[in-house]
Simulated assay, not measured.
Amino acid sequence: MNPAVNEWPKGVLHLAGSEQKFSLMRYAPSAETEYFVQHYWIVRWDLRGREPYHQTVIAHPNVNVVFEKNCTRIYGVGKSTTVRVVQDHGWVIGIKFKPGGFYPFLGDPVSRLTDSSVPLEEVFGMESRGRERFILSAPDDQSMVSRVEAFLVERLPEKDPNVSLVHEMVLSFRDDRSVVRVEDAVRLTGMNKRAMQRLFDRYVGVSPKSVIKRYRLHEAAMRIDQGEVADWLDLSTELGYYDHSHFIRDFKSIVGMSPEEYRKKVEKVAAPGQ
């Protein structure tokens, strides 16, 4: 059985306002697939008789394979926010690969998938409709995850040591708030800047700078969503920004609005009657 992953889903914006629109469950991979896979996720919704809901997400530096009715695809890393329209009723299941974890399946630089998606057939060389129906017809979450895992296990590539290297680097960027610039990442890892950029282009699909920025903004958005921010200067300093205006620019470049505008929108969405 795949245990559920219980943690705040960073990157899902305006989470308080989305709680009545859909459910999100995440499940850990098995020992067979955990070298490549971060977790599996399932979203279910029932908006019959209600308005469609637009959910905004700051993409993580991960490739996702998503099984969805008539729309099963492989999604590369987005450079900014993406919007998913949830309407009527349904469910999807996704495989969220570790940063770098999809490269051994693809065999090409993951950057060719950045800001785009491709059909399952393009990478796995198979007709996807039958497999899509089989997976989505599972009677419960655990059965659906088991069917997705079986699909993946049949196609597991050889383990590539760079997958572990990239994953560890990305985790260190996420957890060490002193890493705000690529130069900080170079200092932390000891890797040449150009070599790091080539590695990330090939295995992650976006630059080290982009990875660092989005993790800082995931944290900022989560803190705002949870109502924990009292002062923008304090927040930017806690996230490792020495220049407050740098934080504001980064936030706006990814989210599309300033932190203050985002907070006002969160408060509006969460207000009774909204």
Rank of each mutant, 00 (worst) to 15 (best):
K213T: 05
Y241R: 06
V186A: 05
R177G: 00
D176H: 07
R216V: 11
Q142N: 12
R249N: 09
R131Q: 12
E149W: 01
R216E: 11
V180K: 08
D250W: 03
D175Y: 08
Q226R: 15
V204A: 05
R155G: 12
F200H: 05
P208N: 04
S143R: 08
D225E: 13
R187Q: 10
S245N: 10
R194F: 06
H246G: 01
F247G: 01
H244G: 10
E132A: 08
K193L: 09
A185F: 00
I135P: 01
S172N: 08
F251D: 01
Q197E: 14
A195S: 10
P161H: 03
V204H: 02
H167E: 10
V179N: 03
S164T: 09
L199A: 05
H246L: 02
F173V: 00
D234L: 06
V229C: 09
R131D: 10
N192W: 01
V206H: 02
A230Y: 13
K209V: 03
Y242F: 11
S164Q: 11
L188N: 06
F251E: 02
V186W: 07
V180N: 13
L165D: 00
F151H: 08
H218V: 00
A138G: 07
A195D: 12
M169Q: 12
P139T: 12
G205E: 06
V163I: 11
K252C: 04
F173R: 01
M191C: 04
P139C: 14
L152K: 06
V180M: 04
R214W: 10
V153E: 11
L239S: 04
D243F: 09
I135W: 14
F173N: 00
E183K: 14
L239W: 04
F134D: 13
V229E: 09
D176R: 07
T189V: 01
V229R: 10
P161E: 13
L217I: 15
V182N: 04
V179S: 06
P157R: 07
Q142R: 14
L136S: 08
L199K: 11
P157H: 08
S143Q: 11
R216K: 15
